Amino acid sequence: MHDQINHDEDCTLIALEIMKMRTVMRELVAERCKLGDNEPIVVQSLFIARRAPAPSRVAKRRLVPPSLAQRALTRRE
Rank of each mutant, 00 (worst) to 15 (best):
L28Y: 06
D37Y: 01
V42N: 03
T23D: 14
T23S: 13
V58E: 07
F47C: 08
R62H: 09
N38S: 05
P40Y: 02
A54V: 15
V24F: 04
R62T: 11
R57S: 06
V29Q: 06
L46Q: 15
V58F: 04
V42K: 07
S56P: 02
V24A: 14
S45F: 00
R51Q: 11
D37I: 03
A54I: 11
R57A: 03
Q44P: 02
V24C: 00
F47R: 11
F47G: 01
C33H: 11
A54F: 08
S56T: 14
V29N: 08
E39N: 10
D37F: 02
S45M: 02
N38V: 03
R26G: 05
L35C: 02
T23Q: 13
K60I: 05
A54D: 11
R32V: 01
R26Q: 14
V58H: 09
E39L: 09
A59V: 12
P55Q: 10
V43F: 05
A54T: 10
K60N: 06
P55E: 10
P40H: 01
Q44S: 07
Q44V: 08
R51M: 08
R57H: 07
R61C: 04
K34Q: 11
D37T: 01
E39R: 15
L35W: 05
E31K: 12
K34T: 07
S45G: 05
R32I: 02
I41H: 02
D37P: 01
E31G: 05
E39C: 06
V29F: 09
E31I: 03
L28W: 05
R62W: 06
A52V: 12
R61K: 10
D37W: 02
A49Q: 08
L63G: 09
R50H: 08
V43I: 15
E31D: 12
R26V: 04
N38M: 06
L46Y: 05
L63M: 07
D37N: 14
R51N: 11
A54E: 10
T23M: 07
V43T: 07
V43S: 02
A52Q: 14
I48Q: 15
M25Y: 12
C33R: 15
L35D: 05
R57N: 10
